[in-house]
Design a protein around this nucleic acid. Structure first.
Length: 487
RNA sequence: GGCCCCAUCGUCUAGUCAGGCCCAGGACAUCACUCUUUCAAGGUGGAGACGGGGGUUCAAAUCCCCCUGGGGCCA
């Protein structure tokens, strides 16, 4: 039999990492078992559901390449279906009308709480006579439909947790249809899962307490009960359920920060599941091959951004350069210094990114890392300048290097290195004595990739010009006195 | 408050189902050293955990019970 799984988000908020991970596990399991992975939008709560969130959720899934089979099911288009099934339960006396007002119910609960009894609906409306119900209905009174919870206990075998049992007496006669005729979560969920032919329900373990209610509904309808697997939650650093307080909530924000979708997918897949052994970086194909819902952990895990960053940099190192370029361009175009004409020389961009990519943890780092390969007027790092321009002899060395560089005919890394080292030797100074100031001259910074490689890329003319410029601007520089802020 | 779930380094986890191979392995982070023109990356090494108490057993991270702690749902 082909299994069928689904991811069923409510468009009442953005798609956050917790939701994505649930989607990932459903997706992986479906692919592993050669089944189907479906999508359902639970938009029955008209007040809190927003169209924009649907797009946000869909875009997030698409970005992560979590693609779904078949058409998306929208609950808002199935309201008639839910009503039909509610009436069926009503007719079979497995559900009943409740005319209690919110105030009445609150009053009831208050008393129960005072008496330290379980807060549960009194079933008051269940004992109403046929005539009374008829009368109340004809008066067009506000009403809900409640499910009549039978006696006994409800147990199920959770694929992750094992057997879980609830006593039915702890479950109140829950509402299945609200007064506005819309279905409640548990009711719509069961009907949809049944209509969609869902065989396995994989969701967060915040739904464990919903499961017995749903099972009771399956039984009332005489439907086959699907398998359930309840995943542990992803918690914020404060060990509380993920929420807006924890910063980047929407997965799209990870995209905007320059995370690679495959890195986030890998990271999230391994948050709560392990293929066993010491695997960290694992391809999607291998995940599908090795995935088993039974290998999921039972305990909640905390989202560790540090490890995500590390994993992203690993993916960044391995990814095809051309793809990195394409993705980087999106970030570069947001920079004010970036000019459209730079994109004509893709070969140069490629070389520059190749040289700097391993220093990037996210794509967003790229523009900063390559800025000085494009613009010539940058400021000089104050701290570095104070340290490396303390000795006026530095200018002597730079002058010397400048004139030696001018003589170079084949401008390459090796030749440049030779020249720089020779000048330092002639001056009877350590090579670093000139290398550091040179770096400041060429990049304005104290750190970066190999100086000689970077000089090769920047080109002879521009390198010489930059050296000329720093000599001119810093001439007469006195450490600690000269105001470097102006550079 | 009621019910349910969970418990291995700071974090993610392997090992738990089929007890001995585990005085607990890996990864991130951290520290030291190394490489090096700098930073990062890389390499080497260090520190770091079975929440507590009872059982069962020749033997428990692993099985059972209790406590504690954390989380979730309902209100």
């Amino acid at each position: 039999m082909q299994i069928r799984l689904r991811f069923a988000p409510a468009p009442t908020g953005v798609l956050h990492v917790g939701g994505v991970r649930t989607a990932i596990y459903n997706f992986l399991y479906a692919r592993k078992m050669k089944g189907k992975f479906l999508l359902r939008i639970e938009d029955t709560d008209v007040e809190r559901s927003q169209k924009e969130f649907i797009d946000v959720i869909l875009n997030g899934l698409k970005w992560l390449k979590i693609d779904w089979d078949e058409e998306i099911i929208f609950q808002s288009k199935r309201l008639d279906v839910y009503r039909k099934y509610a009436i069926k339960l009503l007719e079979e006396k497995k559900a009943y009308y409740c005319f209690c007002s919110e105030e009445e119910l609150e009053e009831e609960r208050k008393i129960l709480r005072l008496e330290k009894k379980p807060v549960k609906y009194s079933r008051k409306c269940y004992s109403k006579s046929e005539e009374e119900i008829k009368r109340l209905l004809s008066e067009n009174r506000e009403k809900t439909v409640r499910f009549l919870v039978p006696d006994g206990e409800t147990k199920f075998l959770d694929l992750i947790h094992g057997e879980i049992t609830f006593k039915n007496e702890e479950i109140e006669d829950f509402i299945i249809l609200r007064s506005d005729g819309s279905p409640t979560y548990n009711f719509a969920c069961v009907i949809d899962d049944r209509d969609m032919g869902i065989t396995h329900v994989i969701r967060g373990d915040d739904h464990i307490s919903n499961t017995p209610k749903q099972i009771l509904l399956y039984k009332a309808f005489g439907w086959e009960i699907p398998e359930f697997a309840h995943l542990p939650m992803i918690l914020g650093p404060d060990r509380k359920k993920l929420s807006k307080r924890h910063g980047a909530t929407s997965v799209i924000e990870y995209k905007e920060e320059g995370f690679l979708p495959e890195a986030l997918f890998n990271f999230l897949a391994l948050l709560g599941w392990s293929p066993g052994g010491d695997v960290e970086i694992i391809s999607r194909e291998d995940m599908i091959e090795k995935f088993d819902i039974k290998d999921c952990r039972k305990s909640a895990s905390i989202f560790d951004r540090q490890k995500l960053l590390w994993m992203n940099s690993e993916y960044l190192k391995r990814k095809d350069l051309n793809e990195i370029i394409d993705l980087s361009l999106e970030f570069l175009r947001k920079e004010k210094w970036w000019k459209k004409e730079y994109e004509k020389d893709l070969e140069y961009l490629k070389k520059v990114v190749e040289l700097t990519r391993e220093r990037a943890k996210v794509l967003k780092d790229i523009p900063y890392l390559i800025e000085y390969f494009y613009i010539d007027d940058f400021g000089y790092d104050v701290e570095a300048t104070e340290r490396y321009f303390a000795d006026p002899k530095v200018f002597e060395g730079l002058e010397e290097i400048k004139s030696e560089l001018e003589k170079i005919e084949t401008w390459d890394e090796k030749k440049i290195e030779e020249v720089v080292r020779k000048v330092a030797d002639n001056l009877k100074e350590k090579h670093a004595f000139l290398i550091h100031p040179l770096r400041i001259a060429l990049t304005g910074r104290k750190v970066g990739p190999s100086l000689f490689k970077l000089m090769e890329l920047i080109g002879k003319e521009r390198c010489i010009e930059r050296i000329r410029k720093i000599i001119k601007e810093l001439w007469g520089y006195i450490p600690g006195k000269t105001d470097l802020k102006k550079f």
